[in-house]
Amino acid sequence: MLEAKLDAASQLKKIVEAIRDMLGECNIECNETGLALQSLDKSHIVLVSLLLGSDGFSEYRCDRGVTLGLNINSLATVLRCANNDDILTLRSEDRANELILTFEDSKADRISEFNLRLMDIDQEYLAIPETEYAATVVMSAAVLQRTLRDLSALSEAVTIEIDKEGIRFSAEGDLGKGSTHFKPCVDMENAENSINITLSEPVSLSFNLQYFSNITKASSLSSTVTLQMTAGMPAQIEYKLPSGHVRYYFAPKIED
């Protein structure tokens, strides 16, 4: 039996909006620690890992594991019926075939209830290896999104090089090439504009910019993003949530 309450529906609405374009049918695993979703995007190039900790809910109860098999776009559609500041409750009985969502306005004189049909989705779960990343960069989520968007005008791929001088994003295409380099810096006024680099050795990887733009849709969830890279492995891109995270494991393009 799952019963989880959020004081503002916007907390869940914006997370689902950020990942809905990448995903289709997926299982949301609910247990006493919270809600977890792990799913490959349609291209199998990105693995999305979402965790919403139970302490992020104003009320949370899940005494036995519940799996919510649903299409993320259907969930997004139902959530569109909630106002951002509605109180949102998710409820599902054990082995139920529906998820009940209720939206109450704060004055509690309007309450909507939606029943989302659940499905049995046999999903392959991938083992995410513990990885020692050669480089970790913490930077503004908006700056990363803007940098990649600018370079997507030049090419469908971006090369990211991280060394002790900083982090360079570069792209080359038919009309020419371009690059943006950021030095490590600390911005005392607003810390989110700082560029913090932890490096054990330089690393350079290339990625598809179309998929990267899907990933950076999560920039609305967190002011900073953590980018972790190591040679020959998928990058880990993490947007922290008040009590959880949205993590993307992004497969690089490998020189053959």
Partner: peptide
């Protein structure tokens, strides 16, 4: 010429 790899080629199945 850089080849796009899939995630499965890096992460095994559980």
């Amino acid at each position: 010429f850089a080849m796009q790899k899939s995630i499965e080629s890096f992460f095994g199945q559980k």
